[in-house]
Nucleic acid binder design. Structure first.
Lengths: 367, 367
DNA sequence: TTGTAAGCGTTATCAA
DNA sequence: TTGATAACGCTTACAA
């Protein structure tokens, strides 16, 4: 039913296009607009990019010509001359937690596109040369700025995108480079809240399922966990740490490790919702009850956390805001504002649902 | 600890940059490389873009100079002159199903970046002017091609991106325009398989939770459902259709509607995993057992489907391949190949898990 | 306020 | 195979 939009012939193999005289209906140039409006190209350019530096009447005439001719400025020419591309690179870490990052990207996209900037995606993926490619993109002047969602900044031969002279902002994780404004969640406070919540429910034997070793967030989150453990005076031997990496598989493995323990913890702190969900599935399949036998707190606040059984107590990260804030900072930098505070910390919030409950009574009736 | 990467001074406001003599360490130009290699700029250009049209020895000399000077060709200049940008626009529908689309995007990205193309994201989002923005991007010559993940092709004043003269490929949904090569899953076969699976288990009263009215996939999926119903000769009054839109909320609403029914279906066909998962949570919370009382089949095959309880029987879409195949087709078109078959259909696969089981015995012991 | 004209850095055409 | 040189389409001093 949809009317087929005219596209010329069917599949003619566009060959006889070499001739000069009006190739059907060539793309309008600024000169065409100038002619149609009876002004110079300079005026057209000004009418379009600096409306207040042109007479109202002229401006309207130009705009009309633009409309009639369906004129769209050529991006390459504009960029070459002006030195700006209006494109931002967003570097996404090796794919993990799509539900988490997609919302951060959403926040970035909203801000950038509202300001007229295009968003280039650069996945820091498995493929060889992927990083080189990103570096070339940046040094090729193709970009006005970059937002990195990963602690790892793309680099090649020691030449990182930080040296390209474009502003860079880090979101979700710090880069370790002082000059890069960074927007993160208060990781340490969050795990502190997670752990205190469990301890407050009477849990004394805890399991911490970590993120990747050395990971920016992981390091900070573990600090919060340890602080809570210390403040509650839990004995060292009642606290277990398992390594993980934020994804499902890690949760399954942690679950298996848990099941194999002689003296199982009753409170579990997970550093991502995916891990928590996979962990929960694994131990429940083995007959462990949540939250009766074990209480579990996730981290991230993805939507799914509210659709598993039992629903997951978790930390809700301001995902959209993380992205939007980072984008705003970058736009500020591009607009010539002086660098803002180096670190912007947004707050995560504990959302209590059904996966946590008072600790089971110690040594009584349990298997 | 990470060495702060030198970035020049602090914020000097780059003023005294007009002077000729080496501004610190200016970005190398093709002329610099030519000089260093003792050849002309034309030769440098050829050495870089058409290696076989230059003497091996010269090529090596040029490459060495490139390395030494850290030369990266200016993208804008290249694009202006060559008329190609090596950038592809990917149009993503109003954000829904991040876990689904992220994998499709992954497939696209792998192919594109391997071929040296950058990927611009265009979310078809709520914001006003968002679509206009995409249209401008395309008509600005900023792009060599586009992949649309949505049946809706961005347009403004009746000027759609299809008329910009760049190749466009549709993935996941058709556009209704014959000239656009399209890659989709065999929707109808998939719902046929979903429904037959339920019917084969003895279910005679079915509920179909639809996608958005008129949606490309929805229309095809419903056909498969109806075909299966017809072939089994189920009476019309035993088949219910509820409207939905692939997201959580729709599943919750469908669940509520289900609970309110006097004579409840025992088999449920959902057209997305999100909907299935939300539906399942809603009815289980009300005491309905899955799969003992109700069997449920999802659609998409997102990872989460294997982590809910019970695990979800579903259709696994070849998400990565959908994206990768679309990207390959686009790259072919960009390479001058003649248009391929207009429609490429990939196959979805029924994955049987725990949310489906034989139908409960009719009229016996039920509430 | 508007017009003139000089580039922006590369690739493609044409000779050599 | 290589080199000179003219575009590519726009923005921006500078002049009028």
């Amino acid at each position: 039913m949809t009317a087929a939009t005219g596209q010329g012939g069917g599949g003619e193999g566009r060959k006889s296009r070499r001739s000069r005289p009006r190739p059907e209906r060539a793309k309008a140039l600024i000169a065409d607009v100038a002619r149609a409006a009876g002004v110079s190209t300079a005026t057209v350019s000004r009418a379009l990019t600096a409306p207040d530096r042109v007479l109202e009447a002229t401006r309207l005439r130009v705009l009309e010509a633009v409309r009639v001719l369906d004129y769209t400025p050529n991006a390459a020419a504009r960029q070459l001359r002006a030195g700006r591309s209006r494109a931002i690179l967003v570097v996404v870490p090796k794919r993990r937690n799509p539900p988490f990052f997609s919302e951060v990207l959403h926040g970035i996209d909203m801000e950038l596109s509202a300001a007229g900037y295009a968003m280039l995606m650069g996945n820091l993926d498995s493929v060889d040369g992927k990083e080189d490619y990103l570096v070339d993109l940046v040094f090729g002047g193709h970009l006005d700025g970059a937002i990195v969602l990963s602690a790892a900044v793309p680099a090649r031969d020691g030449r990182s995108i930080l040296q390209a002279g474009i502003p860079v902002v880090a979101v979700c994780a710090g880069t370790g480079v002082a000059e890069v404004p960074t927007v993160v969640v208060d990781d340490t406070e969050c795990t502190l809240a997670q752990t205190r919540h469990l301890i407050g429910l009477g849990h004394r034997r805890l399991l911490y399922i970590a993120g990747p070793k050395g990971n920016y967030n992981e390091v900070r989150r573990y600090r919060g966990f340890e602080a809570a453990v210390r403040e509650a005076g839990l004995p060292r031997e009642d606290v277990v740490r398992l390594e993980g990496d934020y994804v499902f598989r890690a949760g399954v493995e942690a679950g298996q490790a848990f099941l194999a323990m002689a003296r199982r913890p009753t409170g579990v702190v997970a550093t991502s919702d995916e891990v928590a969900i996979a962990f929960m599935k694994t131990i429940r399949a083995a007959g462990v009850r949540v939250p009766q036998d074990v209480s579990l707190v996730g981290f991230d606040g993805i939507e799914f956390a509210d659709f598993v059984e039992p629903t997951l107590t978790t930390i809700r990260q301001p995902r959209f805001d993380l992205g939007a804030t980072g984008a705003r900072i970058l736009l500020g930098l591009l607009g010539g504002e002086s660098p803002p505070q180096p670190l912007t910390v947004l707050h995560g919030e504990l959302v209590v649902r059904d996966s946590t409950a008072p600790a089971p009574l110690p040594r009584r009736g349990g298997s």
